[in-house]
Amino acid sequence: MRKFLAIYNREVKSYFSSPIAYIIIGLFLLITGVFYYLIVTSFVQYCMRADMQAQYYRMAPPKLNVNVMAIRNLFQNMSLFMSFFLPMITMRLYSDEKKTGTIELLMTSPITNLQSILGKFSAAVTLFLAMLAFTSVYMILLFIYGNPELGPVLTGYLGLFLLGSSYIAFGVFFSTLTDNQIIAAASTFVFILFFWAIGWVSAMVSPGLGHVLSSFSLIEHFEDFAKGVLDTKHIVYYLSFITMGLFLSFVSIESSRWRGR
């Protein structure tokens, strides 16, 4: 545990003592902020139009759900942006160690590969949580000026957390494969995109195959969280995705010893 914490602390410090963390968090907030603005203003305009129509027809103003019409939309956008930003967090984890040779220090110290993988994974998840925490400002504003339901917001965040951790787990894996950060980031991104896309393809193939494909899709499982539905099957899906990523990282590091590179 002490050694896990040593790795974890070092990684977190290294994120926050370099500009990486600030730039990534800043850019993520910039792009989600723009979309937040667009979504909320279009929702407000829509509400005003609906109010006017209701007055014109002398009806009661309609109840428009901010959870369904704005927040869910925002969550979906965030889940997409995460697939660009999270590979940038994970790309250096092992690639950089391989490039600078510090991997030799780690692998000749009395720490297990599992300890180092979990330390690095947790550090990246911590940075990701910081990123998510800042977006809560958007929700707080909605709670101040509107009347959304809390439940779906919380499940949405849980969904984003699990989804992001899955990205990170595979980000760790791809960074164990190469000493080049760009290659690590690009392959993580393409991998994530692939697991998104099989959800779309499922609509075009036979229903049986489609069902199988869509149950593999990263984003298909996120929909329920965004809607406010908490289903164990989705949680299990993401947890197994994370375990798979970490397991592959472990295998990759072990085998790189035998291959000698």
Partner: peptide
């Protein structure tokens, strides 16, 4: 104790912090 050909240094760390980290993982 092992000193590889290229010293395994974390460039962004301070010397003392780095040695402290190594001491931690070396138990």
């Amino acid at each position: 104790g092992y000193l590889p050909e290229n010293p395994p240094l974390y460039q962004e760390m301070r010397v003392r912090d780095y040695l402290d980290f190594v001491a931690k993982i070396k138990q």
